[in-house]
Design a protein around this nucleic acid. Structure first.
Length: 651
RNA sequence: UGCGGGGUGGAGCAGUGGUAGCUCGUCAGGCUCAUAACCUGAAGGCCAAAGGUUCGAUUCCUUUCCCCGCUACCA
């Protein structure tokens, strides 16, 4: 087997975040990969950790009246405990507040500064006193604070910049000549698309007056290092860069940086240019995975549809949770997380196929072979067919792992399990027992047990606890239960015969779906529990949602008279209207410019939604919405049949 | 509006320049060792649409339509 070292990382998670399924998925994926590579006999190093500097930590600490470091120390355990619970076997957990990391960051900064790769520049910033926040010119709306719409103060600010722009052409060339560098391939295209625009220099500092919780710039002690520059360096500071050369040389460059697709640019643009500036080789592959969706929406806290990993673990256990995440998503694309899908996969793959196969073998060995795994006789074609199916899975699993197609590897393993159930059906050991055909019976029981043993090895990286339990059931010595290596499966000597099989309550007991299961609801992806807002009405046919009168009454429709109308500068679909609503003057922005000229609008009586919350369109406030009928390329205003006072209620 | 992703049998998803595959579901049958499980068989797809490249495309190219995310001149 390969002796090449294998180094992989997850992003470091922001310590102030609450762990959610996105964190859990990335980390479990990394853990599964790490375990597989160890299982294949490769020296492996798996790094994860937390990003602990920045505004949010500082703010949270201030609110709680503790130091930022204390804030980090109390929140970091949320990740550490979850990883322990999820059986994560990272070799190191790096925190960006560790002295060793800070030292490395400072040395890198000093080195780049000495080589004129970091420089100081001044620019105008905009500060909102009310919000206590800075904005760039681009952020402002009508020259005002985008948050509170108040005036902002212009402040001359200085910061330090990394000369990222000079690496643009080099990076484009590198990405084009290294197809394995950014995976999946379409993410490389995305990065190249980003690089078609001129690449600016990267601001890497914040004045301490604005942000004090960070790593001090060694050449400018009134500044701290800002976000990514500090965080990205963890990938090398965590394995001994500028601390232990031998260690660093052993692991760098990384085989994989696993990331979510949301932080693609930082990893495929910022980080490579930083490494190039440091004269370090680039990681072999940056792999961006997709997101877990519930129904149609991205899982996010703001949508309130986060599935708490812990909830699902409580239901079926950590191993099943890991299995589901790995089997259900093809790494790279998005996938849906539904409770129904979870339970279905658990019952089908784990309970019915694997758990049940185990149970069948256990019961027959206990009943028909005195509880001891028997010695096989001559193998016939059926036996060889089964063992070949297992060998195929043993071959396909490493291929799948190296191609980052874990879902397919698991499918191969499950195919071997199904072959086991098929084999029992074909050889019918229960009949052999009745016939007293002991030799054949023993051979069949042995082959099935051996199949289970090998499958336990193939699936151990995904389900470490349950596969250890399976190995215990097979009577393997305790020392061999917790760890196993695919690399050892090449040796096919008979290790099971003579072992005392242990009875089992059931490896994966079936679970019942608790959710109410109308046929339609079972088919459609279920929204996660507790998403009242997204639940569509169930009575309405074909997606039309019925509302009751009370719902309708909430919408206030009124007549209005158009007083003035003008085109919105730089927008070809919008008109800005001044209207009269029963004596009240309002401004309204309407997307009707393609159908009505401003002159046509003036004097018209229109119908508006008068209690719609104001919104900004093209930075212009719109206080309501006019009604119009539209089909295809035609649009007609809704107006009244004859004159009526403006401000009249419509209903 | 722009960028990105996607449209494959009832559902969820793989996949490949050369007879279209998996899981679930459905229907029929079998078995009874087993976790109301397991096994066999069947039905069900012109791989979104139209062009093009090719000896040949679901797979490559172009255009169109639809869906999703972000975005936007939806409000």
């Amino acid at each position: 087997m390969s002796e090449a070292p294998f180094y992989l990382t997850t992003p470091i998670y922001y310590v102030n975040d609450k762990p959610h399924i996105g964190h859990a998925y990335t980390t479990i994926l990394a853990d599964v990969l790490a375990r597989y590579h160890r299982s294949l006999g490769e020296p492996t190093f798996f790094l994860t950790g937390t990003d602990e500097h920045g505004q949010k930590v500082q703010k949270a600490a201030t609110e709680r009246g503790i130091t930022p470091q204390e804030q980090c120390d109390t929140t970091v355990v949320r990740f550490q405990e979850l990883w322990e619970r999820l059986e994560i076997t990272n070799d190191r957990f790096i925190r960006t507040t560790e002295p060793s990391h800070k030292k490395v960051v400072q040395e890198v900064l000093q080195d780049l500064y000495d080589r004129d790769l970091i420089y100081k520049a001044e620019y105008i910033g905009h500060y909102c006193i009310g919000c206590e926040r800075f904005f760039t010119a681009k952020d402002l709306v009508d020259g005002k604070c985008p948050e509170c719409n108040r005036d902002v103060a212009e402040i001359l600010e200085s910061n330090y910049f990394f000369r990222m722009s000079r690496y643009q052409d080099w990076l484009i060339d590198y990405i084009q000549t290294h197809p394995e560098f950014i995976q999946p391939a379409f993410r490389a295209n995305e990065t190249l698309g980003f690089l078609r625009q001129p690449l600016g220099d990267l601001c890497i500092s914040r004045p301490k007056s604005r942000l004090s919780w960070g790593i001090e710039l060694p050449f400018a002690t009134d500044y701290v290092c800002y976000v990514w520059f500090d965080a990205l360096i963890n990938y090398i500071s965590g394995i001994g860069y500028r601390q232990d050369d031998e260690l660093f040389r052993k692991w760098w460059p990384a085989n994989y940086h696993l990331i979510g697709k949301d932080i693609l640019t930082t990893h495929t643009v910022y980080w490579p240019t930083m490494l190039q500036a440091m004269n370090l080789p680039l990681p072999k592959t940056i792999f961006a995975h997709g997101w877990w969706l519930t129904g149609r929406d991205k899982m996010s806290k703001s949508l309130g549809n986060v599935i708490n990993p812990m909830d699902m673990i409580a239901k079926c256990g950590v191993d099943a949770f890991r299995y589901y995440l790995m089997a259900e998503m093809s790494p790279g694309s998005d996938a849906s997380f539904t409770e129904a899908g979870f339970v279905s996969r658990y019952n089908c793959d784990l309970a019915n196929d694997l758990g049940n196969l185990t149970s069948r073998v256990v019961k027959m060995v206990l009943r028909n072979a005195g509880g001891v795994i028997p010695r096989p006789g001559e193998l016939n074609d059926d036996d060889r067919e089964l063992l070949d199916a297992v060998r195929a899975a043993t071959r396909e699993m490493p291929e799948a792992i190296h191609a980052m197609k874990i879902d397919q590897g698991l499918d191969s393993a499950l195919n071997a399990v199904r072959a086991g159930n098929r084999y029992l059906e074909k050889t019918a050991p229960w009949t052999l027992a009745k016939q007293g055909n002991t030799e054949r019976l023993h051979t069949v029981l042995y082959c099935t047990a051996e199949t289970l043993r090998r499958i336990s090895v193939l699936l151990q990286p995904v389900m470490p606890r349950k596969m250890a339990e399976l190995r215990r059931i097979l009577g393997l010595p305790e020392a061999e239960c917790e760890t196993s290596r695919i690399a050892d499966l090449a040796d096919e000597s008979n290790v099971l015969s003579g072992l005392a099989m242990q009875d089992s309550e059931g490896l994966f007991p079936r679970v019942l779906i608790e959710v109410e299961d109308t046929p339609a609801a079972a088919e459609a992806p279920k929204p996660a529990a507790k998403t009242p807002a997204s639940q569509k009405s169930e009575a309405a046919p074909e997606g039309v949602q019925l509302i009751n009168f009370a719902d309708f009454s909430r919408v206030q429709l009124k007549t209005a008279k158009v007083l003035e109308a003008e085109k919105v500068e730089g927008a070809d679909k919008l008109l800005k209207l001044q209207i009269d609503v029963g004596g009240e003057r309002r401004q309204l922005v309407a997307g009707v410019a393609l159908y009505y000229t401003p002159e046509q609008m003036v004097g018209k009586t229109i119908v508006i939604v008068s209690n719609l919350e104001p919104a900004k369109i093209r930075k212009i406030e719109s206080q309501g919405m006019l009604l119009a009928a539209k089909v295809g390329n035609e649009l007609r205003l809704i107006t009244t049949d004859g004159e009526i006072a403006s401000g009249a209620g419509v209903g």
